[in-house]
Design a binder for these strands. Structure first.
Length: 720
DNA sequence: TGAATCGATGTTTTT
DNA sequence: CATCGATTCA
């Protein structure tokens, strides 16, 4: 008898291999978590390995929590001794301990994308970057890319003005982060990796963690790879789990080669393929397989299931985004009436913006739903404001947070004042916050001096007391001293929701304080860390009865019985932003594969021929090329596109273009008739919507209506 | 010098 | 559509 009796042959093979390198190629739904948790249980219960010696790295906190719970179910409280963590949390932990080795204080703040952009924007202003193409967002993403690739500012290849500018901003940015005692997401990994170059630290970590496991290995980047390699270097007991077909984070530096080359890296690695799928029906799996096999990077696997064929995949062609949402809505209502629950349904989409139509539809029909991701709770202006106060209190060197709140609520402290104070701080070689305390020595006006000093004092008082205060108390003091709520009351028309969010923040502090992990007390630093490192789906509750909405990216690792894959249109999915290089397209296809394989019983796929994009209507949208890649045997069309006789062509056009009968008049002077399909040299396919007598044509193109003078028409248009 | 108002502008995807 | 920045107003 072994605990491993509950596994299939392959799973068991993987779970029994404890020593040496192991690669588990786990297809979607193949019982990966089960295998890994049983493996840990087996190590502890049957091999006598101390749980302290085990490090398991996951992709999200939710995955970590789930793994810990499932191990606990198998081995009891010993499970708590296993280190199950995300790369980022693991790194932060280590960095808090050894921050000084890298020139940081242990109370460093963590900058999210928004903070990064603010800092980069500030630096760009200082460096007087004139190129309008280089927005803070673009420069930030390029800097992050350098960081993820392990390139220091000095390493950057400056082959033109743009790269020179980016490199200069990057250099300043890196300096500023240290001055601000702050790390961005990439730093958490980079600095962890740097720490592991320190003999003392490495020795300690290697001694402690004799066994290391990495989940979602296909989505690790080069730095994470180095971290893993260093830790595993002594004992070589490294187990990585992943699926190259589900690598979807290339844009964030994930390197699919890490998993593809694992066997080259560790010549004696054992490779186990988990190919039996326990999640989806034959039809769903067949559809997924037919798509992914077109990828050249796929190593090819034979995912199979004992499940029944199940339902065909339903394809719905909607006229527009609202009709698509209505379809989803009706299906859910139908299901609900047939005894299903809201929680049985999940809507998946490519971009966060798509959630809106569904949210509106669900609200109208009082269907309970929850959107995961998108504008994160902690990123909302009003919440981030309060968090910024907390961050300044936690780490007064953090000028990104300080500048954010210095004039919130309005205190008549503007850019010019801030500049003067900064100059003073530089002159005196003190921090900006300290300069605020010595504002009397500056040349600022008397009224300003009072306001600034008051703010300084308020913050300083809390800072001095911080170790005697609970995080809730700090929150209360901030709200009280700043009168933030009354400020919000005059903020905008959505002030009620904003106040609600600020109150909700207090609830979330209390929830954390009362959680098992913190047992009544969470320090300010720990709280801020939690808010910085939460992932979209960390708070997903399987049991709550709501329809779940999220991006496909966020759905990774999850499974749902009924899935609506919506917005299946070219330009949206695959995204028009993907430059259609092979690599990009393959990543989009993997994303499609991930989406399909989330579904257990029923998959609906929909697309619309019109939809709002940026507040304008985009017309004549084409179904996604990926839709055409799905083997016909697995799909059925809910509303088969009507076959239209040539005579009735116009009525088909009127169907989706709202051309009324009176529009069918013909202007004799024009060679073009209303309803006629044309191709424009620049704008592509279009339909003539109107002919303004002898003057110009109104043509509906994908990205909107255009008016074209008749004189130009013959030059640019050809009949379709 | 700060606040208000009005245009321009852009979004894949996220720890 | 919604946010951000520049321009203008007070």
């Amino acid at each position: 008898m072994s605990i491993l009796d509950g596994l299939n042959t392959e799973q068991r093979k993987a779970a029994e291999k404890i020593d040496g390198p192991l690669l588990i190629l786990a297809g979607a739904g193949s019982g990966k978590t089960r295998t890994v948790t049983y493996r840990i249980a087996h190590m502890v219960l049957e091999k006598g390995i101390s749980p302290y010696k085990i490090l398991a790295v996951t992709f999200t906190n939710k995955a970590a929590k789930e793994m810990r719970e499932r191990v606990e179910n198998l081995i009891g409280l010993e499970a708590k001794k296993v280190m199950v963590s995300t790369f980022h949390s693991f790194g932060v932990r280590l960095l808090r301990t050894y921050a000084t080795k890298l020139g940081y204080d242990s109370n460093f703040n963590i900058y999210d994308g928004d903070d990064q952009k603010r800092l980069v924007g500030r630096i760009m202003k200082e460096l007087v970057v004139t190129n309008k193409q280089l927005t803070p967002a673009i420069v930030t993403s390029r800097i992050s890319k350098y960081k993820e690739d392990g390139e220091e500012p000095a390493d950057v290849d400056v082959y033109n003005t743009d790269t020179r500018v980016v490199a200069a901003v990057y250099e300043k940015y890196a300096e500023e982060l240290i001055k601000n005692n702050a790390m961005d997401f990439a730093d958490l990994l980079i600095n962890t990796n740097k720490l592991l170059d320190d003999k003392e630290v490495l020795e300690k970590i290697q001694t402690r963690y004799e066994y290391i496991m990495v989940d979602e290995y296909q989505d690790t980047n080069n730095i994470q790879y180095q971290i893993v390699t260093k830790i595993a270097n002594r004992h070589k007991n490294i187990c990585v789990v992943g699926d190259e077909d589900q690598s979807i984070y290339g844009f964030r530096g994930a390197n699919i080669k890490n998993i593809l080359d694992f066997e080259k890296e560790y010549k004696d690695a054992m490779v186990v393929k988990l190919e039996q799928n326990y999640r989806s029906t034959k039809n769903i799996l067949g559809a997924a397989n037919s798509v992914i096999k077109l990828n050249t990077t796929s190593r090819g696997k034979n995912l199979w299931t004992e499940k029944e064929k199940g339902n065909l995949i339903e394809i719905f062609a909607a006229t527009d985004g609202r009709a698509e949402a209505d379809y989803v809505l009706q299906e859910i209502i139908k299901g609900k009436n047939a005894g299903k629950s809201y929680k049985d349904y999940t809507v998946l989409y490519r971009t966060n913006a798509q959630s809106r139509v569904f949210e509106e539809a669900f609200l109208r029909h009082r269907i309970s739903y929850k959107i995961f991701g998108g504008m994160q709770f902690y990123q909302r202006v009003e919440v981030k404001d309060i968090l910024s106060y907390m961050r300044v209190i936690n780490n007064p060197k953090d000028t990104v947070s300080l500048f954010r709140i210095i004039n919130v609520p309005k205190r008549k402290i503007g850019a010019a004042t801030i500049d003067k104070l900064r100059t003073f701080a530089e002159l005196e070689n003190i921090t900006f916050f300290e300069a605020m305390g010595r504002v009397e020595e500056t040349k600022l006006g008397p009224a300003l001096r009072v306001t600034i000093f008051q703010l300084y004092e308020t913050l300083k008082n809390i800072i001095d007391e911080v170790e005697f205060l609970t995080t809730s108390e700090i929150y209360d003091m901030i709200l009280e001293k700043t009168n933030y709520i009354s400020y919000l009351e005059t903020y905008d028309e959505k002030f009620e929701a904003r106040i609600e969010n600020v109150r909700e923040l207090r609830t979330s502090i209390q929830e954390m304080e009362n959680s098992e992990q913190y047992e009544g007390f969470i320090s300010l630093g720990e709280f801020l860390e939690q808010t910085a490192l939460v992932a979209a789906t960390d708070d997903l509750e399987e049991d709550t009865d709501y329809v779940k909405l999220m991006t496909i990216h966020n759905s990774k690792g999850l499974e749902f019985s009924n899935v609506f894959l919506v917005g299946m249109e070219d330009e949206l999915f695959p995204s028009s932003k993907a430059d259609f290089s092979d690599d990009d397209l393959e990543e989009e296809r993997r994303l499609c594969y991930v989406a399909i394989t989330r579904a257990e019983e029923k998959l609906h796929i929909s697309h619309a021929s019109e939809r709002m994009v940026y507040g304008r209507i985009s017309y004549m949208r084409e179904p996604s090329r990926f839709l055409k890649e799905i083997d016909e045997n697995y799909i059925e069309y809910v509303n088969k596109p009507k076959i239209i006789s040539p005579k009735k062509q116009e009525s088909k056009l009127s169907g989706f273009n709202l051309i009324t009968k009176k529009d069918f008049k013909v202007d004799e002077k024009s060679p073009f008739k209303i309803g006629e399909k044309v191709i424009h040299k620049k704008f592509g396919n279009g339909v003539i919507k109107d002919v303004e007598a002898g003057k110009r044509l109104v043509i509906r193109f994908r990205d909107g209506d255009k008016k074209l003078p008749l004189i130009l028409a013959e030059k640019f248009l050809t009949k379709q």
